[in-house]
Write a protein that binds this DNA or RNA. Structure first.
Length: 352
DNA sequence: AAGGCGGGGAC
DNA sequence: GTCCCAGCCTT
């Protein structure tokens, strides 16, 4: 099968089985496609749809996104994870307004230079929204191509990725770039799935090496895994007389960057130290009330065991410089809290 | 509890 | 190039 047959088969399959009614496939502007691609970077379609619709309802245009407060943008992102994506989205919107007069750039190099956009995402935006010839290589396409050519080795490894890019480029047809890009993503997402691929229905199964050699179980090669370290932190649950909870804005880098959250503290401190910590780091005088059940949250690079400690607010200590951005969380709020923190707070409210 | 999904950027 | 970073959902 040459490259022309490959793309023809893919496109014919797309005409019958491809997805054509996803929210971001309607009124395909660079802005709308861009937002969808960023959300889809590590989140599955079914999860993204709800977030996407709410986000686009709130930020209808690139200008509106650029004008928004970062807290507001993060609020609409909260629960999706990988919050750098949202920060970059906002940053890029502002950058396009200032540097490109509000017009989404239309060359691969320009798009790829934007924060949060790499080669594959740039290709997706260009092909999907402007029907330009630009290959992509997302996880779906990597899987399809690795299987088709029986390429062993973790697809994230630079040498493997390079080989896959070569094929991605070579198979991209000379027409229908938008449909082809969507088709490859759909094929990977619906037929060429990681486990139990539906090979009999695949339009390119006759020449797929992994299928014909019965190797779809082992290709693509899984990412090499390493043991994740375990870290412990206190989770400071400070409540005032009104039942409001003390939260602070996290620093822009690190986990849950720029999100509002309960403060945390080194687990090396003992219960007594915690009140000192609150006084010195948060400028809040409080007393220990109780210890709640610890829970684990796993990131891609470590396990975090959080040990909630409930404290009663006594008073604020005025004018300590450098104390973080903080506020009291009221019952009804619009803030973006990390998913496990939200779960914890919600579970505490249920206790009453 | 374990695995899946996926890309960007700093060094 | 080679690490290192970042979370949620499904099974």
């Amino acid at each position: 099968m040459n490259e022309k047959h490959f793309s023809q088969s893919i496109l014919e399959w797309f005409d019958v089985h491809g997805r054509k009614n996803l929210p971001w496939q309607i009124n395909k502007t660079p802005y709308r496609v861009w937002v969808s691609e960023i959300m889809l970077q590590q989140t599955q379609v079914t999860t993204v749809i709800g977030y996407y619709n709410r986000f686009m309802d709130q930020f209808k245009s690139l200008e509106e996104l650029a004008k928004a407060d970062e807290d507001d943008v993060l609020g609409y992102w909260a629960g999706l994870g990988y919050y750098a994506r949202a920060r970059n989205l906002h940053k890029t919107a502002k950058l396009i307004v200032s540097e490109y007069d509000g017009e989404f750039p239309s060359t691969l190099d320009e798009i790829e230079s934007l924060p949060g956009i790499g080669r594959s995402t740039a290709g997706a935006i260009l092909s999907l929204s402007l029907n330009q010839r630009a290959p992509i290589l997302d996880g779906n396409v990597k899987r399809v191509l690795a299987r088709f050519h029986a390429i062993e080795g973790w697809t994230g490894h630079p040498s493997i990725a390079k080989e896959l890019w070569y094929w991605a480029e070579r198979y991209t047809p000379k027409t229908r770039f938008s449909d082809y890009t969507q088709a490859m993503m759909d094929l990977g997402a619906t037929l060429c799935t990681r486990s139990k691929p539906n090979c009999p229905q695949c339009p390119i199964n006759s020449t797929c090496r992994a299928y014909n050699e019965d190797r779809t179980n082992t290709i693509p090669t899984p990412k090499p895994k390493k043991a994740l370290p375990v870290k412990h932190r206190w989770l400071l649950h400070i409540e005032n007389q009104k039942g409001e909870i003390y939260i602070e804005k996290r620093p822009p880098s690190g986990i849950w960057g720029s999100l509002w959250s309960l403060p945390d503290a080194p687990y090396t401190l003992d219960g007594n130290d915690i009140t000192h910590y609150c006084r010195e780091q948060l400028a809040v005088e409080c007393t220990v009330l109780s210890y709640k059940e610890s829970f684990k949250h796993t990131f891609s690079h470590y396990h975090l065991i959080l040990h909630p400690i409930k404290l009663s607010y006594v008073s604020s200590i005025p004018s300590i410089s450098g104390c973080s951005d903080s506020r009291w969380l009221k019952g009804k709020h619009q803030l973006g809290l990390p998913a496990p923190i939200k779960i914890y707070i919600d579970s505490m409210e249920e206790e009453y």
